[in-house]
Simulated scan of single mutants.
Amino acid sequence: MSSTAQFIRQSEPHWQAYVRHDFVCRLADGTLPQACFRHYLKQDYIYLFHYSRMFALAMYKSENFTQMQTARDSLNAVLDEIQLHIAFCREWGIGEAELFAEQESSALIAYTRYVLDCGLTGSLAELYAAIAPCMLGYAEIGRWIKEERQIDENHPYRAWIDTYADSAFQQSAVEMTHFIDNLCQPLTPAQLEKAGHIFTTATRMEAAFWDMGLNCSL
């Protein structure tokens, strides 16, 4: 079993609480209140800022040019995504001024600072173990919704679903999985156990992020 597959298995039941969260299920059904989705979008904008910092840190922690290239490509992709996110928010009636003025939620602070702390104090593998639940979970969510739900052109969250069900995003998740598996290959059992614990903690925080979106809390 690959390291990432092992991390996901060991993170149960938290993984299922994350990828089948009520926020996700209601989004899939189109019954998620639009106020919740808008709140999530504004908090996700702030998350993307810290997500960029995570990959910038990964570049610094890299031990060779291949690892540095992977981190750089991820950072560039996130920087491009931020511009798309701003445009998407505008379609939902959220202007840049409102985005820039948004207060950072407690759930977001806890999650992003945890990931950055893992990177600052730990190895590159530990940093990616903390980063991984985001991309791998969103890929599973997008794939699940597309396979299990009828998404017609009038679905209010079709654009969001299409983004994460898209073949390009799915392929990026596969490539991230292979990269992390290679990073973890030389780790000792104790190091793997620590990375797995980090993955589980980050997964729990992803579920808490959905809680924040559903409750519109700060």
Rank of each mutant, 00 (worst) to 15 (best):
A97Y: 09
N182Y: 13
C184V: 07
C89G: 09
E63I: 04
F7C: 05
F55W: 13
Q83P: 01
A202E: 03
C89Q: 05
C118I: 01
I109T: 15
A5K: 15
R149N: 10
I8E: 00
M54D: 06
E63K: 10
R149Q: 15
Y114K: 04
I82G: 01
Y60L: 14
I198Q: 08
L32G: 00
T31C: 06
Y114S: 09
A56W: 06
Y157R: 11
Y40W: 13
F23M: 04
F88P: 00
Y114N: 07
D22M: 06
K42M: 11
R113L: 11
Q103R: 15
C184T: 12
T163I: 03
A159C: 07
A125L: 15
T177S: 11
Y164C: 01
V24G: 00
W92N: 14
I141S: 00
Y47S: 03
A110M: 06
S3R: 04
A5F: 08
L32N: 00
G30V: 05
I145E: 02
A87E: 13
V174Y: 12
Q83C: 06
L75N: 03
T31G: 05
E140L: 09
M212C: 09
Y47P: 05
Y111Q: 06
W210K: 01
Q34E: 14
E96K: 12
Y47E: 03
E193V: 05
Q67Y: 07
F7K: 04
G142L: 01
S105W: 01
L27R: 08
A125T: 15
A195F: 11
C134S: 08
K61N: 10
R26G: 03
T4A: 12
D181C: 02
Y60F: 10
L41E: 03
M1E: 13
D22C: 04
E206H: 05
A130Q: 05
C134M: 06
S62N: 04
C36T: 03
L120I: 12
A168D: 14
A173P: 10
N64E: 06
N154S: 10
I180R: 01
F37K: 04
S62I: 02
N215V: 03
A132S: 14
D29S: 13
Y114V: 00
L57Y: 05
M54P: 02
C118W: 02
A132H: 03
V78P: 00
F37T: 01
D80H: 15
R143E: 13
Q150P: 00
W210V: 00
P13E: 02
L48F: 09
E91Q: 15
A97Q: 15
L84C: 07
V19N: 04
S52A: 12
W144F: 08
S62F: 02
S123K: 12
D152F: 00
M68Q: 08
R53G: 09
K194T: 14
A87N: 12
A207P: 02
H155G: 10
D162T: 08
M68N: 08
V115H: 00
A101N: 09
G137S: 04
M59L: 15
P33M: 07
A165Y: 11
L218T: 10
L84Q: 13
R38S: 10
I145P: 09
Y157E: 06
T177A: 12
E96M: 15
L99P: 01
F65N: 14
T66E: 15
A28S: 13
F7I: 00
R38E: 10
Q10F: 11
F37L: 04
G93H: 09
G93L: 07
I8A: 01
Y157I: 02
Y128F: 15
A56S: 14
A77G: 10
S11T: 04
E63C: 14
A107G: 11
Y164I: 02
